[in-house]
Amino acid sequence: MKDLIEEITGIFGPSGSEEKVRTVINKKISNYVDGIETDKLGNLIAFKKGNGEGKKIMLAAHMDQIGLLITHIDENGFLRFTKIGGVNPKRLIGQRFILANGMTGTVGVEKVDEEKEIKFDKLYLDIGASSREEAEKHVSIGDSAIYKPQFDVSGNRVISSYLDNRLGCAVLIMVLEKLKKSPHDIYFVFTVQEEVGLRGAKTAAYQINPDLALAVDVTITGDTPEAHTMDVALGNGTAIKIKDQASITHPMIKELLILTAKKHGIKHQLEVLEHGGTDAGSIHLTRGGIPSGTISLPIRYVHTPSEMADLNDIKASIELILRVLGEEI
């Protein structure tokens, strides 16, 4: 499990440039599925056939990650950038970023008097180039960059960049490896462009038109010093989402998840998230409405290069998904 998480969190794939992630996942799962294709926007859709008596289920985990978009290269070779997805400019100084070609840079800041002045137009990425010409050999405007991947294991927890949401991708891969039999037709969808507006899941759901859908994504916790008022804690099991800003879990799905977890003694917690959303937000409004929910992986320090997850929570999440897929719905 740890190896898979390390490998998959280390692949370059910010929103709109998910090719490499898609290739790796495709290779890992193609033996376990009955069909696999990439759609027009770049979603990877893998299909596993049921026994003809079940439902059509869509599982979605997004492949894309937040990062930077290079917007300007100055005479001295410094790169200016804006954000891709939810990146906080105040937390970037000194962070290392890499480009698609592996080139590393670090973020610097213009002279400012107060921290609140730190906005994207005060920051720059220094890739070690001393002139525009030199920089342009490695990078051009419109390129993107990601946090330089870092992965560590601390006790029963992993600290890594981009658990959001490669951890969700890893969970779906492990579900596929372990899934023996299900009555249902299951579509494993690795979506694109979630971080910039839940986009890939929308068009994939339109194409698949499932009876129900589950997003697998990360959520924040309220278990750190002076944290948000939130009940989710690391190590308390898989989190069943009740509500976030983009969706309210369909009561039927909520019940299905809670009852299945209880029936099989799977450690779980309920999640009410005041901000943010998952692919379920766009899936459930597709066509005439698709009952949807989210299985959340509790993570501390979301959208920083050091996100933390608990291995037992991951196992519980995998088990819950497997059990749900095994049930008659």
Partner: peptide
């Protein structure tokens, strides 16, 4: 771009 199955 988000119409139906997606339009490049």
């Amino acid at each position: 771009s988000l119409v139906k199955e997606g339009i490049p």
